[in-house]
Structure formats: C-alpha cells, structure tokens
Amino acid sequence: MDQFNKDINNFWDQLSGPEIWTLIGKGFLKIILIIIIAAVAIKVGKKVIDKVFMSRQRGPFRITERRENTLKKLLHNVLTYTVYFTAFIMILDEGLGLAIGPLLAGAGVAGLAIGFGAQNLVRDIISGFFIIFEDQFSVGDYIFTSNVEGTVEEIGIRTTKIKSWTGEQHILPNGNVTQVTNYSIHNGLAVVDINIPYESDFESAEKIIEKMAIELPDKYNEIIGTPEVIGVQTLELSHFVMRVITETLPADQWAGARIVRREVKERLYREGIQIPSPRLVMYTRNESPTALEVDGEKKKLQERNED
C-alpha cells in the first residue's frame, strides 16, 4: 500500500512539474509549425507548377490546353499527398517523439500483407496512369463512361470527377473507366429531321432551307460548315421527313441541332409551310361521310353567294 502511494505521488509530481509541460508545449508548437510549413509548401508548390506551365507556353515545346489542365491538376494532387504524408511522419517523429524507424519497418511488412487486399487500389492507380499517358480524355472534355455522361473536372491518382450537365458530380474509380466515348476530340455532326406535309412542294421547301442554311455559320459560332439538305429520309402517313446535317464544334452537336430546328421552323412558317399536325375527323351516327361533305360544300357555296 505504501509503495502504491509512493507511485501515485511520484506520478503527480511529474505531472505537476514544469518539465513535462515544457515538453508537451514544445511538441505542440512543433506540430503547429509543421502544419504551417506544410500548408505554405503546398501553396508555393502549386504556384511553381502553374508558372512552369505558363513558361512552357512561351517555349518551343507546347502542349494543348486540355492536356495542360489535366497535368496541372494531377501534379497538384501528387504534391498535396506527398507533403501531407511527409508532414504526418514529421509530426510522429518531432511532435510526438515516436521512433519512426521501427514504425516504418513494421509498416513495410504490414503494407506487404495489406497489398494483397488492396488490388483495387493498385488497379485504380495504374488505370489513372494509363488514362493520362494515353490521353484518353483530359480535364474539360465531355465524355460518356460507366453510364455517366458529363464534363471531366479532375483526373486524380485514384479517381476521376465528372460533372453532369444537370450539376451532379460523379466520382469514378479509375479502374472502372473501361470504355470511354469522348465528344471533345473531333467536330460533331448535328442531324435534324424535319416533317414536311405532302401538300407542300419538296423543291420549294428544299430551296427555303438551303437559303436559310447559308446564313447560319455567320450567325452562330457553334456551327462550322453550311448545313446540307440530304433529302427525303422517310415517307409517313401525312408527311415526308427531310433530313438536314451540319458540322459543329466538338460537343456542340446538340446545340447545333437545336439551332437548326428553331431556324427551320421560323423560316418555314414565314414562307407559309406549316409543320404537319395530327387531324381528327368526327362523324355522327345518322350522317355518312358523303353527306357531311355535301353539306359542307353547300355551306361554302352559301357563304360565297352571301359575300
């Protein structure tokens, strides 16, 4: 019992003494200092990376803007991960006074064991490397992959962030990016089908659309070449379908199609060609269609005579 009381007293003396609090204070200050240095290093490092890419724009070796944005974001991520990991090791060593050597040795053995269970992580990192190395897509590209469609915001070491046109952000592991449709590499092709009633003349409608098409490239930036009337695509019950195609900027084929539809609709209406619409003819039980037509003709004759 006396020994226990002595141990308690010794512990209390050490806890209330200035030495331990001085040691804790120094460790706390070291941790704060390491965090501040890490934050400054990340900020300065990102600025250095940005300046390096700006200087390359004026040099003999240049890369495309989409490629530049991808590499900058990737280097920013690598810098952040590296600085944070280094800061964590320094906090354990300098701030908490832990022996890093045995800890790293143990981490190496444990990492070997964990590596067998972290195959997906390794696959994501390797897939991310090949995405960037092969230039499958870059930041700012509009793509479709893994049932997700949108604009690439960031390509990281492990994941890719895609923002859909409705605002949602999708985060995909790089290993899941197996098949990609990239709409931002080549020019797009807008395909528009226009319904023309049989009462209208095909050649007249074609000339109206061709005359309108000449004005579109100068009027809209999305449209590159003059829209071309391919001809009659299909024959329906009450109308025939005329197909118009036009070349657009990459990923602007949908906007180009909307522009062509609007301009064609306005021009056809102005020239007196109506877009066909469904019609409903109703008959009564006591009257045949022939009788209705005769009555209709009589009413028209009466109206003409009155006029």
Rank of each mutant, 00 (worst) to 15 (best):
S277P: 07
I196G: 00
V78I: 14
A110K: 00
P60N: 09
V152L: 10
L189D: 14
E263A: 04
E154Q: 12
G296T: 09
A255E: 14
T82L: 10
E134K: 15
L15Q: 08
R56Q: 10
I31Y: 10
K47Q: 08
R279E: 07
V152P: 05
I162P: 06
I194N: 05
G59N: 06
L103T: 15
N174P: 01
K265P: 02
L75S: 10
T248A: 00
T181P: 09
F28A: 15
G117R: 04
T64D: 12
M90P: 00
I196V: 15
V148Q: 06
A41S: 13
I208Q: 04
F144G: 15
K51C: 01
T145Q: 07
I155S: 03
L280M: 13
F4P: 01
D135V: 11
I89M: 10
T82S: 14
A87N: 05
G111C: 03
V241N: 08
I34E: 03
Q3K: 09
M282N: 11
E228N: 11
A107S: 05
I32R: 05
Q253E: 13
Y283L: 09
I259M: 03
L75H: 10
R158N: 05
R123E: 14
G106Q: 03
V148A: 10
V180R: 03
P227A: 02
V44P: 04
N305I: 11
F61W: 10
Y183E: 06
E228I: 11
A118L: 06
L216G: 01
S146H: 15
A213L: 00
L249W: 01
G108D: 04
D252E: 09
G27R: 05
E303A: 08
L301Y: 09
L292G: 02
K161S: 12
D201Q: 13
E287W: 04
F11R: 09
R267M: 13
R158L: 08
F85T: 13
F88M: 11
L104C: 03
T145C: 12
P227L: 01
V232E: 12
G27H: 04
A105G: 10
K211I: 08
I63C: 00
L104V: 11
V260T: 07
S204L: 14
A257L: 07
S200V: 08
I91G: 03
D2E: 13
T22F: 01
V52C: 03
G59S: 10
I49H: 03
L216A: 01
G101S: 11
M54R: 04
M242Y: 03
F144A: 15
A39E: 08
G111Y: 02
E206T: 13
P173F: 06
L23Y: 08
D135Y: 05
N77E: 14
I230L: 13
K211T: 12
S204G: 12
V229M: 01
G17N: 06
L98M: 12
V260G: 07
N10Y: 07
L74N: 14
D124T: 00
E236F: 06
F133W: 15
V40F: 13
V109L: 06
Y283H: 09
R258H: 06
L75I: 12
E271A: 14
Y81E: 15
Q136K: 15
D201T: 12
I126L: 14
G128Q: 11
N147W: 02
A291K: 11
N176S: 15
I259P: 02
E168A: 06
V229R: 01
R270D: 12
I31A: 11
Q14T: 10
T284Q: 07
T151Q: 13
T80S: 14
F240K: 08
S164E: 15
G117P: 01
R262Q: 09
R56A: 12
W12F: 07
